[in-house]
Amino acid sequence: MALSGSALEESARAMLAPGAYDFYAAGSGEELSRDEAADAWRSYRFLPRVLRDVSRVDTGIELLGERLSSPVLAAPTAFHAMAHPEGEVATAEGIRDAGQLMVLSSRATSPVEGVAAAAGPWWFQVYVLRDREITARQVRRAVAAGARALVLTVDAPYVATKPRVTRPLPLPRDAHALDVGVDTRTADWEQDPSIGPGTIDWLRAESGLPVLVKGVLRADDALACRDAGAAGIIVSNHGGRQLDRALPTAHALRPVVEALAGDLPVLVDGGIRTGTDVLTALALGADAVLIGRPVLWALAVEGRAGVRSLLDSYRTELAEAMALVGARSPGEIGFDLLAPWVPTPGTLVNARLPEY
């Protein structure tokens, strides 16, 4: 599969049921945050090093004990069975084939045991529900299946309105959504809007696993999560699906990295569409990035093979960009590679510039 970017999305749109495409593509409100995400990464410019030996470039990283082929992970996204009949199983196989890590959504449409059997290393994403016992049962089931970390989503105390989602979701009749024997139409299945920092420790105790916190945009919140026992921070605005006009992650990332000062791994998602976007995120201090919607588009177009091809393309593009800026490994990518520059009118930029 050679398609990428907007061409990949358009091919997927032609193959998906309209309700499925709208659900995957939707942002909240006016969709400003959704639409700004990719352009925010493009607002940065590089200042490459020269006369460096880049005859060999290695994109591999180690993250929470996992050796990965590149710093590009698959973000948690819901309801893969709307994109492909094998659902998250096909996604997991493609991610495994690419040597990467999958974050499995708690809104999956394939049984967790089947996904685990098809996956390489994987983490489990958690919404804490009003009925904590439902969450605890989901977590215990994921742990038993082999999850190696939990990802606690914290930016969705309520599900934001998405005006473009007007059709019923075309979910297959046998979709599971990680059922634990409860009626998902009840209020107990809703996210708990009262959670606080202590939830991190509760999940650690329930699971025995490290807990990363996803949905952080502020440095002070990142520090509070660190102090509460988080194993990592994921800078995210939920793909523009929660608070519209939230700051793009490309411009929220650096203050979080500086505040944590290397205490925890920092990951980022939102609008990352090319290897140069990945390079930008690493230069801003991210340890890795997560890709959401493009994985769904690749799954819809070509199933398992499409997911692998997509992740391979990110790795290939990143390797080329690293060579061209004079970095042989992710460890050689630093903030000094980002150049101060004068943006065009209306372009969002990070106010903190490199020091030389």
Rank of each mutant, 00 (worst) to 15 (best):
165 V>G: 05
194 S>F: 05
176 H>M: 07
196 G>T: 11
202 W>G: 00
189 W>K: 02
175 A>N: 04
172 P>N: 12
189 W>I: 00
170 P>N: 08
176 H>W: 11
211 V>T: 09
173 R>W: 05
203 L>A: 06
192 D>T: 01
191 Q>L: 04
175 A>E: 08
190 E>K: 08
178 L>E: 02
185 R>V: 05
178 L>I: 13
169 L>F: 08
164 R>I: 14
180 V>H: 02
181 G>V: 08
170 P>V: 11
187 A>I: 10
197 P>S: 06
202 W>S: 08
175 A>T: 13
197 P>N: 07
201 D>C: 02
164 R>Q: 11
183 D>T: 12
209 L>G: 02
191 Q>P: 10
212 L>Q: 01
200 I>T: 06
192 D>S: 06
213 V>G: 00
171 L>Q: 06
174 D>I: 10
207 S>M: 13
204 R>I: 02
182 V>K: 00
164 R>N: 13
189 W>D: 14
193 P>A: 08
182 V>G: 07
201 D>G: 03
186 T>S: 15
179 D>A: 15
194 S>I: 00
207 S>G: 10
196 G>M: 04
187 A>E: 12
195 I>Q: 08
199 T>F: 14
213 V>E: 01
208 G>Q: 08
168 P>K: 07
179 D>H: 14
209 L>H: 12
193 P>G: 05
209 L>N: 06
176 H>V: 11
182 V>R: 08
190 E>W: 00
192 D>G: 04
170 P>M: 06
177 A>H: 11
190 E>G: 10
185 R>H: 13
182 V>N: 02
192 D>R: 02
174 D>L: 02
181 G>R: 11
172 P>I: 11
184 T>A: 12
188 D>K: 13
187 A>H: 13
213 V>L: 07
179 D>V: 12
198 G>F: 05
175 A>S: 15
168 P>C: 02
204 R>K: 13
190 E>T: 03
210 P>N: 07
165 V>I: 14
196 G>V: 01
212 L>N: 02
164 R>W: 00
185 R>K: 10
183 D>C: 14
177 A>M: 12
172 P>Q: 10
190 E>F: 03
177 A>P: 00
206 E>C: 14
190 E>I: 01
212 L>G: 01
206 E>A: 15
173 R>S: 11
194 S>G: 05
200 I>E: 00
187 A>G: 09
200 I>N: 04
171 L>M: 07
209 L>Q: 08
205 A>M: 06
196 G>Q: 06
170 P>E: 05
202 W>T: 09
180 V>D: 04
168 P>H: 00
186 T>W: 01
204 R>D: 03
202 W>H: 08
197 P>W: 13
176 H>Y: 09
205 A>G: 05
204 R>Y: 03
195 I>L: 09
169 L>W: 06
166 T>E: 15
202 W>E: 15
192 D>Y: 12
178 L>V: 12
182 V>T: 15
198 G>C: 01
168 P>L: 07
208 G>C: 07
194 S>T: 09
